[in-house]
């Protein structure tokens, strides 16, 4: 790997080199490297671009890294990755896409990740998006995540997009059976003229299912963000949506959390707040010896931590 590829890999997967355990590194539409393990099998799809990841029942304390790197300007792709998570397994899945666009044409990665969680399976799914490169070509990422959860399963989903993605349209859809638990944390920062739209549909179908959605974003410069997290309670369930945005400069933020209950015992809450960095926060950190710029940076990094 060259330095550009290594940096992208570090940004999207916190990896300095090829990871331990199962992995699949995709670069400019081609397979860069892959490793399956005894419990986790990665297979190339035959009918369309993408891979199937099959995790055997009972697999515990293993991880799968599937970073996507794009370094060619003007390259566009649509990828379908399906994850079959066996019953009673407990695994970490790290996906993510890094685009380095040094040219003038648009580079784009669209992907649909579909998860099938078996009974009592637990996953932590981390997805980081990052863009860089001095070219004028846009860096676009449109991820879709679809999760079907069988009874008693658990997903912790963490999505992070901090820098360099010009346009993103994200859609997440989760259907939860009885006793399922969902924790989604979304962290997003946009700058310059970037746009980001994040839509979410969480269906709490089964009795005792629970969902927490925490969305934190920072909109800087002329960027625009829109959030539509929707949680629907179809049974005796619990759902909490919390959207917080810090708005700066000439940015625009729309936050439209929606909760809908179709069952008398559905307990659903939503909170949304948009505001600038408070003056007393800056002053407090300045009394600790930070400059105004340093104070701002610490407040933002704490908020998106």
């Amino acid at each position: 790997m060259n330095d550009i590829e290594k940096n992208l890999l570090l940004q999207v997967a916190d990896l300095h080199d090829v990871p331990m355990g199962a992995y699949n590194i995709r670069e400019d539409g081609a397979l860069h490297s892959r490793q399956s393990t005894e419990s986790i099998e990665i297979i190339t799809k035959k009918d369309k671009p993408g891979i199937d990841i099959r995790i055997k029942p009972g697999t515990k304390n293993e991880s799968v890294h599937i970073p996507v790197l794009i370094t060619r300007t003007g390259y566009s792709e649509m990828v379908y990755n399906d994850f079959f998570i066996g019953e009673d397994s407990d695994v970490l899945i790290v996906a993510g896409c890094g685009i380095h666009n040094g040219g003038c044409e648009t580079s784009q990665h669209d992907g649909i990740h579909t998860f099938y969680l078996g009974k009592n399976a637990r996953i932590k799914y981390v997805e980081k998006h990052y863009g860089e490169g001095s070219g004028t070509g846009e860096r676009i990422m449109n991820p879709q995540t679809v999760v079907y959860m069988e009874e008693g399963s658990y997903i912790e989903m963490e999505t992070v997009q901090i820098k360099g993605v010009d346009s993103t349209k994200r859609h997440t859809k989760i259907e939860a059976a009885a006793g399922c638990e969902i924790l989604i944390t979304e962290k997003l920062m946009t700058h310059d003229k970037q746009t980001a739209v994040s839509e979410m549909d969480v269906l709490l179908e089964g009795e005792g299912s629970r969902a927490r959605v925490i969305s934190r974003s920072v909109a800087q410069d002329e960027s625009e963000q829109t959030f539509y997290p929707r949680v629907k309670g179809m049974s005796d369930c619990f759902g909490h949506v919390q959207c917080d945005s810090i708005i700066m400069h000439n940015a625009k933020v729309r936050s439209i959390p929606e909760i809908s209950a179709n069952h008398v015992n559905a307990q659903l809450i939503h909170e949304a707040a948009i505001g600038k960095i408070a003056g007393d926060q800056l002053l407090k950190l300045m009394t600790l010896g930070l400059s105004e710029e340093e104070a701002e940076e610490r407040i933002l990094s704490g908020f998106l931590k």
Partner: peptide, 21 residues
């Protein structure tokens, strides 16, 4: 900031809260 760096400190009557920190 300059005064803080000279060793002066200030405890606010209503300290601000910092989400996430």
């Amino acid at each position: 900031t300059g005064r803080a760096r000279l060793g002066i400190s200030y405890g606010f009557q209503q300290p601000p809260r910092f989400k996430g920190m």
